[in-house]
Amino acid sequence: MKKDTTHHDHSVESHKACVSLVPIFNHLEDGQLDEIMGTTHSVSYQKHELIYHAGDESNALYIVNKGKVRIYRLSESGKEQLVRILNPGDFTGEMALFSESTHETYAEAMVNTKICMINRLDLQEFLMKYPSISLKILAEFSHRLDASEKQSSRFATEKVDTRIALFLVDYLDKEISGTDELTLPMSKKDLASYLGTTPETISRKFNELEDRGYIKQLTHKQIRIVDLDGLLFV
């Protein structure tokens, strides 16, 4: 269950900012946003605090208002597998929209984080009233399924060097800076968990890619892609 260190924030401005930030809601009109806002409440979490555990009842949609959240699974042996990282505007807990269930993953605040929550019954009512929300959620499901299948395929068929190279290329594509530089969205420990390897291997492979002239490590997290074509064929 959630720790006692959480506290509730009922500021209207916070709710409005949170709801209007989310891609599944930001296409709605102001009156519709106000309606959703009225059912939303905010909860703040400290860095490293668990928002929910695997096995907890899943009965709400969690929207990141401020901060960053890591979603991960634990294997039977206790090994962690990072699923994804949520930034402001991202959400989790969407399976609660369709049935009563329990969480299969863990959600942890990576920094001090503020979450907006909408309970399942309220959200189901909005889905019936505003079908466009359902379409937006289905689009996000499709995106996550595609990412999950791509990740599983790479685990099964690609060596670690290739997984790292493809991650860098994919992430560079998502950057809107228009440059050949990117900032890693997570620590090397989390990147290792996401790519199915160890932090030591990540550091070693980054150094190897740099020695081979494919990348330049500018800081601990900032990387310049020197040879994009070469990186594609690692």
Rank of each mutant, 00 (worst) to 15 (best):
L123T: 11
S101P: 03
V12N: 12
H27L: 06
F206S: 01
V234L: 05
L61W: 04
L127H: 02
V111D: 09
L127I: 01
L33M: 12
A54D: 01
E35T: 15
N59W: 06
T102Q: 12
L50N: 09
A109L: 11
K16Q: 11
M37A: 13
K205S: 11
S77W: 04
V169C: 08
D227K: 03
M128Q: 15
S75R: 00
L172Y: 06
S77G: 06
F126Q: 00
K47G: 06
H103V: 00
S187D: 07
V83L: 09
D30R: 10
C116W: 03
M186R: 02
V83C: 02
T162P: 06
R73T: 09
L61R: 02
K221F: 01
I215K: 00
L231Y: 02
T105D: 15
L127A: 05
L209K: 03
M95I: 12
V83P: 05
H48A: 13
K66R: 14
D190E: 07
G93Y: 09
T39H: 14
G89V: 12
D9N: 12
D170G: 08
T198E: 08
T113D: 07
K205P: 08
K114E: 14
Y106M: 07
Y214V: 06
I24S: 07
K216C: 11
R120T: 01
D229K: 11
L82Q: 03
A165Y: 04
C18F: 11
A139S: 15
S11H: 10
Q32M: 11
I133W: 07
Q222G: 05
A60V: 09
E200G: 15
V226C: 07
D180T: 10
E100Y: 10
Y62H: 14
I63N: 11
G178T: 02
N119K: 15
G67N: 01
Y171G: 09
K216Q: 13
L86G: 03
G89P: 05
S148N: 13
S77M: 07
E140C: 07
Q46E: 15
L127Y: 04
E175L: 05
A192R: 02
S148W: 08
E94P: 01
D56Y: 00
L138T: 11
C18H: 04
S14A: 14
I118C: 03
L97P: 00
D161A: 15
H53S: 07
D4F: 09
I225V: 09
E35I: 10
H143R: 14
E29I: 10
G89I: 12
L135T: 13
K216D: 11
V22G: 06
D122G: 07
Y45Q: 02
D9L: 09
Q217V: 15
E181P: 00
R212F: 10
K2Y: 14
Y62V: 12
V19A: 01
G31Q: 13
F233C: 13
F167R: 06
L231T: 03
D56A: 02
T219P: 00
E13M: 10
I164T: 06
L195I: 06
Y106N: 01
L182G: 01
I71E: 01
V12C: 07
D211G: 03
G196K: 03
V111K: 08
E94M: 05
P23Y: 03
I164Q: 06
E200P: 05
D180E: 10
F98Y: 04
K150I: 09
D227S: 05
E149H: 13
S58A: 15
I202N: 01
L218A: 09
Y106Q: 00
E210C: 01
E175R: 08
R224M: 14
E100C: 08
F126V: 01
V19G: 00
R70H: 11
